[in-house]
Nucleic acid binder design. Structure first.
Lengths: 200, 200
DNA sequence: TTTCTGATAAAAATCGAAAATCATCATACG
DNA sequence: CGTATGATGATTTTCGATTTTTATCAGAAA
């Protein structure tokens, strides 16, 4: 029964997140109350708090769920059978494209991500760490294969990540998009810059 | 007399900007009306509009004046008697430090700059062009002296500038400052990254 | 003429208070 | 034990009235 309960509770959390995501998509992140979510599931608002300690916990959990999808994309790129340099380049360009696409097509949902970044929710920190970590992995592999000069992979990855803020950070993407910049080209060029810094 | 008039008008524009700057510093950018400026100068609000076509024109002109001070700092760095690599590094680190310091110490005045960036006022565009231009100059000189490998200076400078958004852009600086990041270290590392990309 | 002012239209910001909504919790119910 | 109700205090929203603010223009002053 202990197992049964755990499964059920975890299942309920998941179901709450699904309903929350629907509402965020439709109504917007700021406008949906936990009462809306509860009502849509035929339960009382108070009952939702049996599964999440606060609304922010719901938000963060949903944020984490969304970011995990992005992380999956990253992993799929990193695991491609290709030279490290090519994968690093693809990571930068495709992650930028992915972020920009989500930002424009799922605007409602990505309001939340922007707030999450401004307030540094745990889910965001985890995601950024994932990106840096995978970059470091590519750097390590590139060094091993002789494509890259020897550097400290973790340090270099962190700096490279910082250098891509212009094409990764939602605020920057939104701002540049308003001016009609060709950001995908920027992403490519920044990737080139990073790869140039890794030349042996 | 034509000359006299022109000097007088230009002088008046300058005096308006000085008064506007005082008010922005004290009361804040959003809270000062052109009536305040006019009153402080003992003239009617209407008369101000003889020298500036709109309030935004005043804002932009003042913004340009402020940015020109920053541009002067940049020039002074670029003209130092030192290797191009050292000057490029100093440019990145010191411009970051300058921006961050202004952002924290002259908060009231820099509200305006943040708005200006979000709305892409002409003064901002001119400033960014100045930064890129001076970076390009340093790249050119570094190539000539053999410090750097041959690249297209303008292209490279633009990309390098984009890569420094994290440590130059007011929004990013403010955000990172809130989390207590050591941004000056980030600036140094990004400078290293850029210099590494320029190795022969 | 040239330089400025006062009056003023239109748009926007501000304000305060009433009403509604919200997250959360203590407690009652099945 | 899991669930729901109802209450609470805090925040947010609403809305209409009032004030500011921007910007213009005819005409006074110099």
């Amino acid at each position: 029964m202990n197992v049964r309960q755990k499964i059920s509770a975890e299942d309920m959390r998941e179901r709450i997140l699904v309903v929350a995501e629907e509402h965020f998509r439709r109504i917007g992140y700021a406008k949906t109350a936990v009462a809306d979510i509860a009502q849509a599931m035929g339960m009382s608002p108070a009952n939702v708090y049996r599964f999440f300690p606060s609304k922010l916990a719901i938000n963060d959990a949903l944020c984490a769920k969304i970011m995990r999808e992005t992380d999956a994309l990253i992993m799929s790129i990193v695991e491609r059978p290709a030279p490290a340099s090519e994968r690093l380049r693809a990571l930068i360009v495709e992650l930028h494209r992915h972020n920009k696409e989500k930002l424009t097509n799922e605007h409602r949902l990505f309001d939340m991500v922007e707030v999450a970044m401004e307030e540094n929710w745990p889910a965001i920190e985890a995601h950024c760490e994932c990106v840096v970590c995978q970059m470091a992995r590519l750097v390590t592999e590139g060094i091993a294969s002789g494509e890259f000069r020897p550097v400290d992979p973790a340090d270099f990855a962190e700096t490279a990540f910082n250098a891509t803020a212009k094409v990764f950070h939602p605020t920057m993407i939104a701002q540049c998009a308003r001016f009609g910049d060709d950001q995908e080209d920027h992403a490519r060029r920044i990737a080139d810059l990073i790869l140039a810094a890794l030349r042996p």
